[in-house]
Design a protein around this nucleic acid. Structure first.
Length: 578
DNA sequence: CTGGGGATGGGGCCC
DNA sequence: CGGGCCCCATCCCCA
């Protein structure tokens, strides 16, 4: 619905009479709030505790300088849960969009305390003032934290890049953790529940979820919806754009960071004040133009929606695992312990594959494609929930583990399907295995630390530039921590799971990077074309497209390339007979 | 249709 | 923990 129809504009111009639509601001806000509730045009996700809220950057930026600085580059914002809870933030977001405080317990001192804390933190000065006033009127005192965003929280991001750092504080409940460890996370929720976002809280449907359709990655399309998704993002996924954008100076950024107590900009003030004063209810509903919106949303889903899609589906985890198995099958160079890791992974993840196959194959062609390939390669189908992973990895016995030539012994699982790779112990449940693995890891790390502390004296080759040699393979390293990092790739399975898709990683950094791709976080922007990348290095590579620089030259034919990897791929053409 | 090159995405790994 | 680089894979374009 158009709030201002063209014919009305015409009338205004013809008559040259100044007119003001009395309900214009209210209607606009109503429309925006309705769009928010449906997820339309939402371009930012705010993570608070275990809840995700979708919103519009413009609205947030107009509401507070703090939000303005946060949404500048990032599509995913994590708020400090010390300062604001999910419940409070829901009220605050409603307030921002409606100018009304809904569902607030007027008599609750705690509620106002929390609201005031959050409002101060988020630099919603009008709301903070209102809370203070209300508390004063009730004769209450403030017991919360009356500070803005702590410099420590913002400092790093600002210092390095002028982009606010994103705080992530995911604390899964013990039950959730238990379930996560037990692998229940990976079950596909066929009910289609959406993420716990503001809109879904309000009972609106997101069933019209749109995938970007442009991404090659199934990860970014795939989204799950199980409740367990609420506890994803256990890390700070934020990244920094390489430079301050032209429209935002360092001073601007500093302002966003430092003006906690200072008067904010006119626009912010106006928005807050206007909406706050205009708090009369408007019972009538706006006409719903869903069909239009649905069309629009396809074109208007922006970066946030490509990766931070409405429904995070877990199914891509299957892709990851299957892919890993596939890689394993293909790569002869994979060493024995990597193989064992695959076996273990397969055991744990096994039931999931079936579940996914049953529940969500239509969502993920790529997933199933990979699975089919694996099954084809293995020449047999999974027969049960426990044994197929061994089959996938080529082991003949469903419960036997036969790693290979590097000293590992055969382990018979028996009823203990969940096997610790480092020590070979079997456990009847994933919880027990996980509990064991954690202890095991710590123990081993402790031993390693001790060994490291002794290492310099006991090194056989003290003058070697890479004195720290891997006990499993021939690799050596300059420092013990790198060796330890490397050795983990041998004896540990992948301890860092992606909480979105379940894929496991050897290094936390890799997992964090991976999660960025899920969420569409591309902090590195090309100033020439605006294209964004998940990694700085990619941007550097990309910039050569604009500069025309081709630093990589083929020594055979003299061909020049912008990227080293393309030179390498080119060299294969020279070396391979095909 | 095919092969080569350009460009990009993702994971592993070392520093 | 981030940066950087390597590798593999893929898509797209073009000759």
């Amino acid at each position: 619905m158009l709030l201002l129809r063209p014919d009305r504009w015409l009338k205004f111009e013809e008559s040259e009479v100044e007119m003001e639509l009395p309900n214009h601001a209210k209607q606009l806000l109503l429309q925006l709030n309705q769009q928010r509730s449906k997820g339309f045009f939402c371009d930012v996700i705010i993570v608070v505790e275990n809840a995700l809220f979708r919103a519009h950057k413009n609205i947030l930026a107009a509401s507070s300088m703090y939000f303005k600085s946060l949404v500048l580059h990032d599509n995913l914002i994590n708020l400090d849960t010390d300062m604001v809870s999910a419940t409070i933030f829901r009220q605050i977001l409603d307030f921002i969009y409606t100018g009304k405080l809904l569902g607030i317990d007027q008599a609750s001192e705690q509620n106002f305390n929390a609201l005031l804390t959050a409002a101060s933190y988020l630099q919603l000065h009008d709301l903070a003032a209102f809370c203070r006033k209300k508390m004063k009127r009730n004769g209450k005192t403030f017991h919360g934290k009356l500070i803005g965003p702590s410099p420590g929280k913002l400092g790093r991001g600002h210092r390095l890049s002028s982009t606010p750092i994103i705080q992530t504080r995911y604390a899964a409940s013990p039950e959730e953790l238990k379930r996560q460890q037990a692998g229940e996370l990976h079950r596909v929720d066929a009910t289609g529940d959406d993420l716990y976002m503001a809109s879904s809280i309000k009972g609106n449907s997101h069933s019209h979820s749109q995938n970007s359709g442009t991404s090659k990655s199934s990860n970014t399309n795939g989204t799950n919806n199980s409740r367990e998704q609420e506890q994803m993002l256990g890390l700070d996924l934020s990244k920094k754009s390489p430079s301050v954008p032209p429209h935002m100076s360092q001073e601007d950024m500093q302002l966003g960071e430092c003006n906690q107590g200072s008067p904010h900009s006119a626009s912010v003030s106006a928005t807050n004040s206007a909406s706050f004063e205009d708090n009369t209810t408007n019972p009538h509903k706006l006409e719903n133009s869903e069909s239009t919106d649905r069309n629009d949303i396809t074109d208007n889903q922006n970066l946030a929606d490509t990766g931070q899609s409405k429904n995070f589906r877990l199914s891509s985890l299957n892709t990851g695992w299957i892919k890993q198995e596939k890689v394993f099958n293909r790569q002869e160079s994979a060493n024995c312990r990597e193989e064992s890791a695959s076996v273990m992974n397969g055991v744990i993840m096994g039931p999931l594959v079936k579940s996914l196959e049953r529940d969500s194959s239509h969502h993920f062609d790529h997933t199933m494609h990979c699975k089919e390939e694996v099954e084809e390669e293995n020449g047999k189908e999974c027969s049960d929930d426990s044994g197929h992973s061994e089959e996938e990895s080529g082991h003949p016995s469903s419960h036997a583990y036969r790693p290979g030539q590097d000293g590992f012994e055969t382990v018979v699982y028996g009823d203990n399907l969940y096997v610790c790779i480092p020590c070979g112990k079997g456990f009847p449940s994933s919880e027990q295995l996980n509990a064991h693995v954690e202890t095991h890891t710590e123990e081993d790390l402790y031993i390693k630390d001790e060994a490291d502390s002794l290492a310099p004296q006991s090194l056989p080759y003290p003058n070697d530039s890479r004195p720290y040699k891997c006990s499993v393979c021939e690799k050596s390293y300059r420092d013990p921590s790198t060796l330890r990092q490397h050795e983990k790739t041998h004896w540990l399975s992948r301890p860092f799971p992606c909480n979105i898709c379940g894929k496991m990683f050897t290094q936390r950094g890799t997992m964090t990077r991976h999660m960025r791709s899920h969420l569409g976080l591309k902090p590195f922007a090309c100033e020439e074309c605006g294209m964004r990348f998940t990694r700085q290095y990619r941007l550097t590579e990309h910039m050569r497209v604009h500069s025309g620089e081709k630093p990589y030259e083929c020594q055979v034919c003299g061909g020049k390339f912008t990227q080293q990897r393309n030179l390498i791929s080119h060299m294969r053409m020279h070396t391979s007979p095909t």
